[in-house]
Simulated assay, not measured.
Amino acid sequence: MDAYLFVHFKEKKTPDGEQVYFALSKDGFNWEPVNDGLPVLWSKLGDEGVRDHTIVRTRSGKFYILATDLGLANGFDTKYRGNWENIGREGSKCLSLWESDDLVNWSEQRMIPLGDEDFGCLWAPDVIYDHRNEDYVIHWSSAHASNNYGHKAIYYTRTKDFESFTAPQMLCRKDGSGIIDSAIYEENGLFYRFLKSEADPASIILQKGKTLTGEYTRIEAFEAEMAKLESTAYEAPTAFKLADGRWCLMLDFYGVQGEGQGYVPFIADDIDSGLFIRSDASFNFPYRFKHGTVLSITSEEYERILRIKA
Rank of each mutant, 00 (worst) to 15 (best):
2 D>F: 08
14 T>N: 05
15 P>C: 06
21 Y>K: 01
22 F>E: 02
23 A>F: 09
24 L>W: 05
28 G>M: 08
30 N>F: 14
31 W>F: 14
34 V>Y: 07
36 D>Y: 15
40 V>T: 01
42 W>K: 10
43 S>I: 06
49 G>W: 04
53 H>D: 04
54 T>A: 10
56 V>P: 04
56 V>F: 15
64 Y>D: 10
67 A>E: 14
73 A>S: 11
73 A>Y: 02
75 G>Y: 06
76 F>P: 01
79 K>P: 02
79 K>W: 12
82 G>P: 11
82 G>T: 07
83 N>R: 05
92 S>Y: 06
94 C>Q: 12
96 S>D: 09
96 S>I: 09
97 L>E: 14
97 L>K: 03
99 E>L: 00
100 S>W: 07
104 V>R: 00
107 S>Y: 13
109 Q>G: 04
113 P>V: 03
114 L>Q: 04
118 D>Q: 06
120 G>I: 00
130 D>S: 11
130 D>I: 10
133 N>I: 07
139 H>E: 10
139 H>D: 00
145 A>M: 09
146 S>P: 00
151 H>P: 07
152 K>T: 15
154 I>L: 11
156 Y>I: 12
156 Y>C: 01
158 R>Y: 10
159 T>C: 00
160 K>Q: 12
160 K>G: 12
162 F>V: 13
163 E>D: 15
163 E>R: 13
164 S>F: 15
165 F>I: 11
165 F>E: 09
167 A>R: 07
172 C>W: 14
174 K>Q: 14
178 G>T: 08
187 E>G: 00
188 N>E: 15
188 N>H: 10
190 L>Q: 05
191 F>N: 01
194 F>R: 00
201 P>W: 10
203 S>R: 05
210 K>I: 09
210 K>L: 08
211 T>P: 03
213 T>V: 11
213 T>W: 01
213 T>K: 00
213 T>D: 03
217 T>Q: 03
218 R>I: 12
220 E>T: 10
223 E>G: 08
225 E>Y: 07
226 M>Q: 15
226 M>R: 12
228 K>Q: 12
228 K>Y: 10
241 K>I: 12
243 A>Y: 07
245 G>I: 13
245 G>K: 01
247 W>V: 05
250 M>S: 04
252 D>M: 09
253 F>M: 10
254 Y>R: 03
255 G>Q: 05
259 E>L: 07
268 A>E: 12
272 D>L: 06
272 D>P: 00
273 S>W: 14
277 I>L: 12
279 S>V: 04
282 S>D: 15
282 S>H: 11
282 S>V: 14
283 F>Y: 15
287 Y>S: 03
288 R>A: 13
289 F>I: 11
289 F>N: 03
291 H>M: 08
291 H>G: 03
295 L>E: 01
295 L>S: 01
304 R>T: 01
305 I>F: 02
305 I>M: 10
